[in-house]
Design a protein around this nucleic acid. Structure first.
Lengths: 170, 170
DNA sequence: GTTAGTTACATGCGTACGCATATAATCGGC
DNA sequence: GCCGATTATATGCGTACGCATGTAACTAAC
């Protein structure tokens, strides 16, 4: 569903003629992927594993947990679907809860340099294990190993970065 | 990425032993799909095609445009990633903007029965065409026809409904 | 060294959202 | 036909978000 395809039945005319089907193919794929994402997100959000965190907040903890070096706000903003001010305040809340620390970078006093506290790391691990189990249950219930691997490959390829977007007709 | 996998390196022990890899496979697939979704959503949201609508608002217009019969709030709520009160107020805004009409159902006076106005249908078509073009551009730039079809198939299968969730070990 | 320009983050303000709850209509049993 | 239970939607309230803008720190040209 949703912010998805929406190319109506197509007025038939215009364009190379054969590209029509390709456009529909792309939109159908996006709508299906979008719907799947929505459905799973709703399902995961309903799980009682979040320890009072929103999924976005957990997302930040998870991202930090994967980085061994301190991250700046700007680094995280590329990974989280949230505006810069939104992310700034989200981190505020995590700091207030004692899950994240804001350290000052001696090289650049415009600050940031975020690190998980021990408590933050513990919470991430706990929530991560439970959420990971939910994810695995949902995904393996319907897809085979080959399909899972294929989905990963397609998803990675879909947002790979071959110098931004290639031309329409190179 | 994000509200995604997070199953850490795995403590090795426990479980059938072979299911470990399957769990990781599932979590990797989800994380990749999640990241792709995030990236594309950000990209689509940045496009200047929304005519002052949020993507969720467009989503509702799109969903309504696909239904020939009037829809109730409850029908829509299954399709949009939004709480029932949130959807109620979102529809309020669309009604205020003259894009949607709330008619009373003679069979059930608890109301709803939402329809697109002519203006609403026009806006949906305009936005839909432009958004659909963006979607097609982004998707076809990186995936072949076969891959697009495959992605659609996998996405549909991922949320197919074989009587809810099967057992862990049937 | 001073200053224009840029980068990194924070804050004010209005809006949208989720949760809990209220209201209103239909349904079932009697 | 009346009353509790259920369904469908709306509202109060507190929180989170995005946009525009502010503030502080770094960079560079002179």
């Amino acid at each position: 569903m949703r912010p998805s395809p929406a190319v109506p039945p197509a007025p038939a005319a215009s364009s190379p003629g054969a590209a029509r089907g390709r456009t529909r193919l792309a939109n159908n794929a996006w709508e299906a992927a979008f719907t799947a994402h929505s459905t799973l997100m709703r399902q995961f959000a309903a799980e009682d594993v979040w320890a009072g965190l929103s999924m976005r907040e957990y997302d930040v903890l998870y991202t930090l947990s994967k980085c061994d070096t301190p991250q700046r706000l700007g680094d995280l903003s590329g990974h989280v679907l949230l505006s810069q001010p939104g992310l700034s305040r989200l981190v505020d809340r995590l700091v207030e809860r004692g899950l994240v620390e804001r350290c000052v970078d001696p090289k650049d006093a415009r600050a940031a340099n975020l690190t998980l506290t021990e408590a933050g790391r513990a919470v991430q691990r706990t929530v991560g294990r439970a959420h990971g189990a939910s994810v695995a249950a949902a995904m393996t219930a319907r897809l085979t190993d080959e399909e899972l691997a294929l989905l990963e490959t397609l998803s990675l390829k879909l947002v790979s970065d071959p110098d931004s977007l290639p031309e329409e007709h190179p």
